[in-house]
Design a protein around this nucleic acid. Sequence first.
DNA 1: TTAGCACATTCGAATATGCTAATATTTAAA
DNA 2: TTTAAATATTAGCATATTCGAATGTGCTAA
Lengths: 106, 106
Amino acid sequence: MDKKIYEMHAEICKTLANPKRLEIIDALRDGEKNVSELASTAKINQANISQHLTILRQKNIVSTRRDGSHIYYKLAYPEMIKACEIIRDVLQKQLAGNTRLSKRVK
Amino acid sequence: MDKKIYEMHAEICKTLANPKRLEIIDALRDGEKNVSELASTAKINQANISQHLTILRQKNIVSTRRDGSHIYYKLAYPEMIKACEIIRDVLQKQLAGNTRLSKRVK
DNA sequence: TTAGCACATTCGAATATGCTAATATTTAAA
DNA sequence: TTTAAATATTAGCATATTCGAATGTGCTAA
């Protein structure tokens, strides 16, 4: 039925389910950056960031543009940021909830 | 620095990165359901849905309430639905984009 | 107390993922 | 055309995930 949709949705989530890729997405929030800029911002080694960028590009979450010997990456769908924000808000609430719980437990 | 946030965020995404769990979340959109209701809605066998529910509960994405021999699950943070919707919108755009591209390629 | 649902847990095999190190490709400039 | 910088790709290992089968636990009704 909708199974296919859930699978594709899960694929996107799987792509987002990595701290380095989330950091890359966050770094692209305000516009494009090339690979070495991203690598130094997120402190990820060259091969590894390239692998993550390849995955993000394959899943059509980022798009690229070449400028000389540099390749610039940007978010293909900037509204993705909003989804990330919602999840981080939930995360904040979860953490706040734990604190309240911890206090109550004492 | 923020690395910890990205890791926790990734944990949530990882929890969402499974088609069955997404279907369960979707099934809880309009309110709580017990395990067998969820199992029949999503056509997932008993052991397996229980495993997925355990994961969702551990990650504090759903919460539970017992009523006799039944256990009811609901979304702990219903705003999670909104994040899912955004991602599905992006998915739609991606698919639409591919179609346009396919046409252009012809 | 026992029988029988409703649900959870454990185990093992198959598969997927992330990382590092090494190597390759592309481009620009000398 | 050689060299160096920017980026990509590959190989291989370690770790994680998913699933079904089997088994365990909690609740209710008789």
